[in-house]
Design a protein around this nucleic acid. Structure first.
Lengths: 232, 232
DNA sequence: GTGCCTCTGTACGATAGCCTACAGACTATC
DNA sequence: GATAGTCTGTAGGCTATCGTACAGAGGCAC
């Protein structure tokens, strides 16, 4: 279940239930398109979403990742109708979603307890984006790949999830062969198994050890706000 | 004058005046220290501030820049007592400042018209950080240097401001000699004059032309929200 | 004005990642 | 189970930037 919704008192959760719709979203499903009106906010449970910024030449870089610890559509909470980043499904799975206008009236304006949790999340999301900014500049592909894989691992059920090298290259903002080289190193080190778009984490501790310091810094931003372990 | 304060209706500005204090801050003055309580929010007028993330080994990268178009201390508005980034004065000058607790009671909780403006700015700040994240990853030093210099130019009075290569290196997250090389190219192209920590913009249009697409994307985030030209 | 310190410009070998290309491995489809 | 299409691994030359080093120029303190 989504950690934000889970933290809402039972009574309030019942009140909000009619406004929430359960949807199962496929890989690459676009939840928020850059520059276009945001129709819904999403609360992922087992699914993971990525926010990416796209340059005019089509090159993309991930600026944030959102799983069960957060909400997709922080811009709606900030009363913005559009965002500069596109947010889409990276690991398919279930989400609860709510229409943006309903979210504003029933959660934000109604001062739902959920609203306070989301305020916390928005600031965590901002921190995450700032740390990503520095990490993208400074750290090497291999370290960033370890960080990314472990962060996704922390957000899915089990140790397996679908992902292709080309997709990783979009996320990390690098070329696809560079990802293949880095992934081969992790595979040889016994950290992961990789079979045609399907990744299995074999050594979670090893991945953490191979990740840059940003991994802990990012996960800590959620853990200290919500008092919950995200790392597994 | 700070553009946010300027946009507040006259009567409200008079009401807030007693809570605002004018301060002149020196270069490198730390307004918000990473991980430490935020005492004040600041409204720069001619001064410019940088938010940077610092890695454990001391390497730093700028994640956002704030001048007269914004406020330093968006985290206070998000009801956070700390931030992961440090924000400090990059170009000295005047700022209005307000105590964080007073800001929360008199602006945020009081639903001041200023509060709505700041909400807009917070989302612009988030967009700025996201674009910076991608820019840091993808674009070359020379393009990013042009962008950075022009953004500062847009935020100061006149065409001159103090800055040293080492400082630029911290901002861009690169090594100092790399900055010297890039700066020498701009100097030879007649875009800037540079004399011992003192920079003059000679060809503003040329700088814009040399900057990556992120320059327009970033400034547009403010201009479309506030309906005001920031680029000069 | 002298001496010290800081800042800038440049050099150069090292390296990470780019870019392109291609072959082999796997998958889906019929 | 044949075929076409997709995905992965690798290669190799290229470029941007790193990392280190050092000399000269400008500013500051005495």
């Amino acid at each position: 279940m989504n950690l934000l919704l889970e933290a809402v008192p039972e009574a309030e959760r019942r009140r909000l239930a009619p406004f929430l719709e359960s949807v199962t979203l496929d890989m690459k499903h676009v939840m928020v398109e850059a520059g276009e009106p945001i129709r819904h906010v999403y609360f992922p449970s087992g699914s993971v979403a990525s926010s990416v910024y796209t340059m005019r030449d089509g090159s993309t870089v991930e600026t944030a990742i959102t799983g069960r610890e957060g909400i997709v559509g922080v811009h709606v909470w900030l009363r913005q109708s559009v965002a500069v980043t596109r947010t889409f499904i990276q690991v398919p799975g279930e989400c609860m979603r709510m229409r943006s206008d309903v979210f504003l009236s029933e959660v934000v304006d109604a001062k739902s307890p959920l609203n306070d949790l989301i305020a916390e999340y928005v600031s965590a999301y901002l921190s995450l984006t700032a740390i990503t900014s520095a990490c993208n500049r400074i750290h090497r592909i291999e370290e960033r790949l370890c960080r990314w894989l472990k962060m996704v691992h922390n957000r899915v059920d089990g140790d397996e999830f679908p992902v292709r090298h080309e997709f990783l290259a979009y996320m990390l903002g690098v070329h696809r062969p560079s990802v293949s080289i880095a992934a081969a190193i992790l595979r040889r080190a016994g950290l992961i198994r990789y079979e045609y778009g399907h990744l299995t984490v074999l050594d979670a501790k090893g991945l953490e050890a191979g990740a840059c310091e940003c991994y802990s810094a990012m996960e800590l931003e959620f853990e200290r706000r919500f008092g919950r372990q995200l790392r597994k």
